[in-house]
Simulated assay, not measured.
Amino acid sequence: MSPTLRATRGVLCQFCGVEKPPELITDPSGEPADAAPGAGDLAELDELVGRCTACPRLVEWREEVARVKRAAFRDEDYWGRPVPGFGPSDAEIAIVGLAPAAHGGNRTGRMFTGDRSGDVLFQALHDVGLASQPESVSLHDGLRLHHTRITAPVHCAPPANKPTPAERDTCRPWLVRELDLLRPTLRVVVVLGGFGWQSLLPVLADAVWQVPRPRPKFGHLAHAELPATDGGPPLHLLGCYHVSQRNVQTKLMSPAMLREVLERAKDLAGVA
């Protein structure tokens, strides 16, 4: 078991102990701290993530959204379960967001798919050569990511887009194991927003990378190089304002700004 997994194994959610069975999952994968270390590869990890029921508040919310639906999607079958990461197992670049959107990833089953944020993100990824097409609309649309994997510190859509600290910490072992499995090729992590940045640093601090002290602060185009303790190459952290609809509408974030960050990530990762 990796140092990071040992460090997170004892983290428990204050909401643990599901009071009623989930409607969409009949075979829960168990507590993340127990289940995540056993994943032998990313495909197995993704399957386990999709069966997580560790936080009852999130289970209840994501399934309620899947039942009630938004009027525009009333004829669709919502995913309504935890949303695993997406991208190749040998990715050099990881993109870390916040959590799935209630009517985006929680509907489609893919991170950043089916909402305005995803429209901006995947167009930019395609523009810089990291995605095979500029749109992501469903699990079966043929989209492929190049050199890049997208994930999040929280895998369930939270009410008001605000997971609690306990829910974030309960979900942490999934991200820990994901980074462990990506370790041979991972060189750069692009973090979308301050929540993702703050959630990621504790994970890295207990892994094979040294987080500087004082800890690097989040900001757009913020860059920190984390030396490795295992003799391998360092990890580069890049901050990026979140591609939320509000940030884009207020022009805090623009497609050009996102492309700049992604091009920087490619350069640092050595991706042509």
Rank of each mutant, 00 (worst) to 15 (best):
L48I: 01
E63N: 08
L252H: 11
R57F: 10
R74H: 13
R187D: 02
L235P: 14
N247I: 02
E64H: 11
A152H: 12
G85A: 15
L143D: 06
D77P: 00
N161F: 13
L200R: 06
V176A: 15
S136Q: 07
F73A: 08
P88Y: 06
G97P: 05
R51E: 08
L221K: 07
E47Y: 00
P32I: 09
P216S: 08
P202F: 02
K69W: 10
P165L: 12
R110W: 05
A224E: 03
D27C: 07
H220Y: 06
R264E: 14
L238V: 10
T108D: 12
P3R: 13
V65H: 04
L221D: 12
R149S: 15
G118Y: 11
V188R: 06
P234I: 06
V137M: 01
W174H: 02
L58S: 12
N106V: 09
Q123S: 15
A265C: 05
F218N: 00
G30W: 01
T113N: 01
L24Q: 09
V248K: 03
C16M: 07
V49F: 04
L252M: 12
L48W: 10
C52P: 05
T26C: 00
L121T: 10
P214I: 03
K69P: 03
E19N: 11
V11Y: 12
V137P: 00
D267F: 05
P88L: 09
G194K: 07
A222L: 00
G40W: 03
E135Y: 06
M111I: 12
E178C: 04
R246T: 09
P216A: 09
Y78F: 15
S136Y: 07
R213E: 15
R144W: 01
H147F: 10
K251G: 04
P214L: 09
H103L: 09
A33K: 03
T151H: 02
F122R: 06
G270H: 07
T53K: 02
K251P: 00
P21R: 15
A71W: 03
C16Q: 09
V137R: 15
G270V: 00
D206A: 15
L181P: 07
G219S: 12
H147D: 15
R110F: 06
H140M: 06
L204R: 04
P88S: 10
V243R: 07
L42N: 05
A54T: 12
V243T: 13
P184A: 08
A35G: 02
R70Y: 11
A91V: 04
T170Y: 05
S199H: 01
L45W: 13
T8A: 09
H236N: 14
P214D: 08
T151A: 08
R215W: 10
D206P: 00
D267I: 02
V176G: 06
A256L: 00
L204A: 07
T53C: 15
V191T: 11
D75V: 05
A102M: 01
E31P: 01
L258N: 08
V65R: 11
V11K: 06
L45T: 07
E76M: 12
E135Q: 03
V83C: 07
R183K: 14
F195M: 03
V120Y: 13
R81L: 10
L226M: 04
D180A: 13
P21Y: 10
T108I: 08
T4P: 00
